[in-house]
Design a binder for these strands. Sequence first.
RNA 1: GCCGGGAUGGUGAAAUUGGUAGACACGCAAGACUUAAAAUCUUGUGAACAUUUGUUCGUGCGGGUUCAAGUCCCGCUCCUGGCACCA
Length: 911
Amino acid sequence: MAEYQFRATEKKWQAFWEKNQTFNAKDDFQKPKYYALDMFPYPSGAGLHVGHPLGYIASDIVARFKKQQGFNVLHPMGFDSFGLPAEQYAIQTGQHPAITTEQNIKRYIEQLKNIGFAYDWKREVRTSEPSFYKWTQWIFMQLFNSWYDFTDNKARPISVLIEHFEKAGNQLIKAACDEDTESFKANDWLHFSDEEKQKILLKYRIAYLSEAIVNWCPALGTVLSNDEVKDGYSERGGHPVERKKMMQWSMRISAFAERLLEGLNRLDWPEPVKEMQRNWIGKSVGAELSFEVADYQNQEIKVFTTRVDTIYGVTFMVLAPEHELVAQITTAEQKEAVEEYVKVAKNRSERERMTEVKRVSGVFTGAYAIHPFTGEKIQVWIGDYVLAGYGTGAVMAVPSDDERDLAFAQHFNLPVREVVENDKIVNSDFLTGLPIKEAIAKAVSYIEEKGIGKGKVNYRMRDAIFSRQRYWGEPVPVYFKNDIPYLLEEDQLPLELPEVDKYLPTEDGEPPLARAKNWKTEEGYELEKSTMPGWAGSSWYMFRYMDPHNSGAFVDQNKQEYWKNVDLYIGGSEHATGHLLYSRFWTKFLFDLGYITVDEPFQKMINQGMIQGRSNFVYRVEGKNTYVSKNLKDDYTTQMLHVDVNIVFNDELDIEKFRRWRPENADAEFILEDGKYICGTEIEKMSKSKHNVVNPDDVIEQYGADTLRLYEMFLGPLEQFKPWNTNGIDGTSKFLKKLWRLFHNEKGEFEVAEGEVDKKALKALHLAIQKVEYDIEHFSFNTSVSTFMICVNTLTDLKCNNKAILSDLVRIIAPYAPHICEELWELLGNKGSISEAGWPAFNPEFIKENDFTYPVSVNGKHRDNMTFAVNSPKEEIEKAVLANPVIQKWIEGKPIKKMIIVPNKIVNIVV
RNA sequence: GCCGGGAUGGUGAAAUUGGUAGACACGCAAGACUUAAAAUCUUGUGAACAUUUGUUCGUGCGGGUUCAAGUCCCGCUCCUGGCACCA
């Protein structure tokens, strides 16, 4: 064999792995386990581009490394296969989304296998398969059948709550529930009808149905959760989103807010993602207190504040336009103005409201509130800078210490009273003179004593809307009797998606499932018509891989106890406030009910940076079919046009391919520089329309999968954003050829030497072993590739073809470039996969040096190098250094102030 | 506005506790092999000046700490990600 035949070899080993099921995880509970997972991909129609595998390659390297180290490795892949694009395509073409999805997955798997990933394909899961979503529905049922107990801080079965109600009503219980839950006694409960009981329980369930203001996206015909809306537009598709009041399923994730926040401290995650989750949860510690409304007996305005210490600075109050008291307290004179304002504010889209942040608007209600400390009468206004959804939807305005209140006060000429000076409270009766922190504590205990308020923690995070008025999602296992939701029986799962004639809403605006024939239970009760959101399946899939074919449980308890949770999770940081929060929430829930033994799903996470596209441009002379090379373009009037990056090499256009690219290019003319056509470049997102998409299959065809893997790693640190540029790929390709040549003689025949090993070769090898172990554990894959190059270069220079050295060498390169290493391992006379050949032990003895070459500096400037034995005494070094003529020249008789000798580091002389 | 991340040759980058800045590659240049090209190999390649040793400058900008700073501290500029009327 003259040269390495990468295509044939790669195919050979991919077939070998598949045939021998080399990378199947075993349920061998004796072995230490390692679970490496990539974020669940959505199989899009465009297939994988060269940016997608970046993280997959990294996790694959870790998985293979851990396997060689003797771990039982779980490294699966599957598909988050419910989702909007397949459904949008179905709407346009009438094709069932299951068919498109199936095709896309097929293509994804082909592409993934082509790269040679060590996935356990036996464990592949798809969220749109009934055998999978049966368990998504089952978990939904558990969520419906549970409530959140703030006393024990955990989710508990609803039966426990019912017992409470029977014994003591709901007055003493600390449970997460709807705002409008009325209190009742045990006796009341006993006399409620079953339906009344169900209505009450619904206010406590973790999966609950309620009327909520939702993000409605008319273009998609569905509601969206907060994390799916960006700046007033839908994240997918960029359609406008409006606020609408609708009956919706929600998840009481807000009950878990404190634990979701606290749990972050125990996770080994990138700090920015943790910070994003902290901001999203938005904890603020403060107090809630009530202001009486003047001339109304029982009306109070509740406010939340983080600065009770500024209470004496309250000069007016502001309610959100949607606040329920607005209609009741507005005086006759102000009625018209208030109604007009509320109407405008309500019709204003979220989008408009955001863009007009700086504009102050509001109107006086005519009503007054009583200041609880001073008894003063203060005006009550409404203004849309107060958000209905946060806190109590009302604020006590302290214009002296709050920018927004101040802007409002100045605009409407309301009074301002200074209460804080130099971080001390002033003009505030019993609080005067106190530092802010103490004043807050004192004010809180005062309001608690007086019974007008209490200390309170508030969270920004809202409950998550769980219904989607779409077809391609999990049906909700619920039916309705007199508008009250009831669960199906467990043995009725999975509730499969019905066939429909069209994937559109009905004429009456009902979701697509309303089109299904007989979408009812056997008894004739109507089934729920909305489906679950995209994040349902991905909130628990990491546990399914542990036991993917179990038909009796979502995961076997023993298996889960062994695999615990994900040791390494690699994916993009764009899921920070969506998937990564929801999956933590479901994990905590399942933990509370005792179904799993961990309360966090992903112990360590790494975010890979996005690979951007590097677009190429050609410059067409205006009005002609003539293209001018980049550096000559300023002499002409030109149009800059995207050109397919696949026909450009090192920014030089392949003119023949360009002529064939599009028919109109066939007779194009070119103005060249130095005989070449040079293209312009720009960094943009990889997309079809920019002609900058690079398909990994094409790269593999040309260079091989091992080269692609090495090159993606060599590009730079994993977390960094970087443009894809094939310019450097030759380097990694050449490296593999060099590696191959180490094992072959000049005639191209395989030839390795037995016997004695060269000390220098041994040192080169062990330096590499040490470095690669360090790098993999620190996720620094780019430096490993350099290390391999250095090692192979050294061994080439040494003409080393020692069998023992080369055997170790291929074992450390194998996680990165598995195909070529398998082949070499086999040529070395071994049977079976190199992935089962263990990891070479690093021996520090082999890298020990007898000498150290000191850089010698004078006044911090490097002047010469001098070699000494590693254990030379300082005196000896000092003497030799001072005797060095180069150093003497720099000292030139100046007095030596100080001589710094750091053993085996540096020598510095200060003169 | 608030909170992160970053800035090093022509390019991608490296420098693990402060200790020879630019490892390893790409590109470029020169040479070898070849009728020629490709492939491969060798040598050089931060900048400026001297060009035989050599000297000075140099990690976004301005200060500081230190024998010694890409690395630590203070102040700025630019790029980038996230959040944003959250009381």
